[in-house]
């Protein structure tokens, strides 16, 4: 068996460690800015009509200003928190739903599995962005509403993935050995099965962070995510569309950051997943 598998699997891709160093440092800087950016530039949103639409490289405004004379660099840095924290919360919250409901569905089976399965079907049938726009519109939008909404809309894929992982583990003899010891179902589910699907969980949290980042920015861009007047990359995109040719940096910098963070998180998730599954394969 082992021989056959060893021959069939293609050699694992090995990403050069320097790539991971770059990604790690970049994400650390982003995290730092998310934590301290608002403190560094407490008045990033202050308008200054006299300094309106300064180009890149202007004195005191290295990335220029927008239409309202707000410094692009300061706004971008101050906007890190709003742009990054939401997506991270969405990914974590949705995975929490996935862990609880997916594990229950996969381990208990029966009517619970059926009910949870139909619920995920229903949610998956909804187009994420459209549903978010409608609900935000009805509830009046806002950051917290967007986070909760995206958690609900992101959860079905997590539920399904965790359920699939749990199903696979449940068939293994070590789970039956636990059942032979009459361990409680909660112990079996969360002490035995869950650690063994952690690869799936971690990889998927990373992937979802990237997706949520884009979804969040899209919503902000459409004007339903973040309220106007809050520093946010998506918001910057929508506000500065009109001045694209006067100060391109006002659009390009936040857009680039969204793309870079999404890619970095993806690469990190990929790498973590690969590493974890390699450790698991040795088991």
């Amino acid at each position: 068996m082992t021989a056959a598998i060893a021959l069939i699997t293609t050699p694992t891709r090995r990403r050069a460690p320097w790539m991971m160093v770059i990604v790690g440092v970049f994400l650390a800087v982003i995290a730092l800015l998310a934590a301290a950016g608002g403190l560094l530039f407490p008045d990033a949103m202050r308008q200054d009509i006299l300094a309106s639409l300064l180009p890149v490289g202007s004195e005191g405004h290295p990335l220029g200003t927008d239409e309202l004379g707000r410094d692009v660099l300061a706004m971008t840095i101050a906007g890190t928190a709003s742009s990054v924290v939401g997506p991270v919360l969405v990914a974590l919250g949705s995975m929490l739903c996935g862990i609880v409901l997916g594990t229950l569905a996969g381990y208990e089976r029966g009517w619970l599995d059926f009910a949870i399965g139909r619920w995920t079907d229903l949610l998956l049938a909804l187009p994420v962005l459209l549903a978010a726009i409608v609900v935000s519109g009805v509830l009046g939008g806002g950051y917290a509403v967007t986070v909760v909404l995206l958690i609900v809309l992101f959860s079905p894929s997590d539920i399904r993935i965790v359920r699939a992982g749990v199903l696979e583990q449940t068939a293994r003899p070590y789970i039956e050995a636990a059942q032979m010891l009459s361990l409680s179902r909660w112990r079996v589910m969360f002490r035995h099965i869950l650690p063994n699907v952690s690869t799936l969980v971690i990889t998927n949290v990373m992937l979802n962070t990237a997706f949520a980042l884009v979804a969040f920015s899209s919503l902000s861009f459409l004007g339903v995510g973040v309220s106007p007047g809050v520093a946010d990359w998506g918001r910057q995109l929508t506000d500065n569309r009109a001045i694209m040719f006067d100060n391109p940096a006002a659009v390009i910098v936040p857009a680039l950051l969204i793309i870079l963070v999404a890619c970095a998180v993806n690469v990190l998730g990929d790498w973590l997943g690969e590493r974890l599954s390699r450790t698991g394969a040795a088991a």
Partner: peptide, 22 residues
């Protein structure tokens, strides 16, 4: 209907019968 002190089972595959994370 069974208790652990009545019977226990030892499976075929020693690779999957122990939780790899413990």
């Amino acid at each position: 209907s069974r208790t652990p002190d009545q019977m226990q089972i030892v499976f075929q595959d020693p690779y999957s019968s122990l939780n790899p994370m413990m």
